[in-house]
């Protein structure tokens, strides 16, 4: 059935396309150590981009083409008047209905196996439509034209290369508190719901599980301590109406209209040859046409 007994026992089964995996981040256990960021850079051979000075303890101001996962720091005063940090490991959400895949004009971005949104940089042309279509700001294209890898989109691949070989994603493997979990999606949702109940019982009354229903179901789930907006996550993310109109209305209607127009011109050509070339032999004139002129 594609459903593992527990999320931990998940194993890739290429013969079963209905198998869906997910990554679940239990933010209540995250200590903001950024080991996941380092492991991600190391495994994916992404360059270090230091000294970006976001002005906080956060390592980078936002994700970029070579930074595929990032602990976002939310510093705030809670209800008890205490200053607290909230951490959210931000990266591609691997949406079931993804803005980036909708906007991509090539085969670079696709819905892959296990629910992963795959990115093939070889096919990417760097148009950055994906970057601008993503509701989570999770995929980027560099603006630097001198970097040989520039003008290629970059984002979390859910370590597709590792998970298809039965390994865990690099960030999951390295997490010292095991707050990043990976495995069968349904089982993780079940685990997440229990965890939320547990947290609520311990007094975290706003605890919630994020990613179950958003955009058809995300393959990145979060146990959050506060409502999603507090973390800068959209409660109800959507693919933009403009993007949908572009892809599903203007493009097909345009093709239809131009196709019909070309057909009309072909009909016109056949009819017009009869109407206008008949009089040619009689004299060098415009046939019926000139006769109609005042």
């Amino acid at each position: 059935m594609g459903r593992a007994a527990t999320w931990e026992t998940w194993k890739p089964d290429p013969g079963n396309p209905n198998q869906h995996v997910a990554m679940l981040v239990d933010t209540s256990e995250c200590i903001g150590c950024k080991a996941c960021e380092v492991a991600c850079k190391q495994w994916n051979l992404n360059e270090a981009r230091i000294n970006q000075e976001p002005g906080t303890y956060q390592s980078h101001p936002h994700l970029d083409a070579e930074t595929w996962t990032l602990i976002r720091f939310v510093e705030r005063t809670n209800d008890q008047g205490e200053v607290e940090w909230l951490f959210q490991k931000h990266n591609c959400m691997h949406c079931t209905e993804a803005g980036c895949v909708t906007a991509c004009p090539t085969d670079a971005l696709q819905y892959g196996k296990y629910g992963v949104v795959t990115l093939d940089q070889e096919k990417c042309i760097g148009c950055a439509y994906c970057e601008q279509a993503c509701p989570f700001d999770a995929i980027h294209v560099d603006r630097n034209p001198f970097n040989p890898r520039a003008q290629k989109a970059g984002k979390c691949t859910l370590c597709y290369d590792r998970i298809t070989m039965g390994m865990q994603p690099a960030c999951v493997k390295t997490c010292p508190t095991d707050c990043i979990k990976f495995g069968d999606r349904d089982a993780l949702i079940e685990w997440g719901r229990q965890r939320v109940e547990e947290l609520k019982a311990r007094g975290f009354k706003n605890a919630n599980l994020y990613g179950v229903d958003q955009l058809g179901g995300l393959h990145e789930l979060y146990v959050l301590l506060e409502p999603p907006e507090v973390y800068g996550l959209p409660a109800n993310p959507k693919i933009s109406t403009w993007t949908k109109l572009w892809k599903y209305a203007v493009q097909p209607l345009g093709k239809l209209a131009v196709g019909a127009g070309i057909f009309g011109l072909a009909v016109n050509w056949v009819a017009a040859r009869r109407a206008f070339l008949q009089g040619e032999a009689a004299g060098h004139g415009a046939g019926d046409h000139a006769a109609g002129q005042p």
Partner: peptide, 19 residues
């Protein structure tokens, strides 16, 4: 981003009209 998405739509609309 929403402005960019609108611009993409406008560019495409002009394409079909112009074509």
């Amino acid at each position: 981003a929403e402005t960019f998405r609108l611009m993409l739509l406008i560019h495409n609309f002009c394409f079909w009209l112009g074509l």
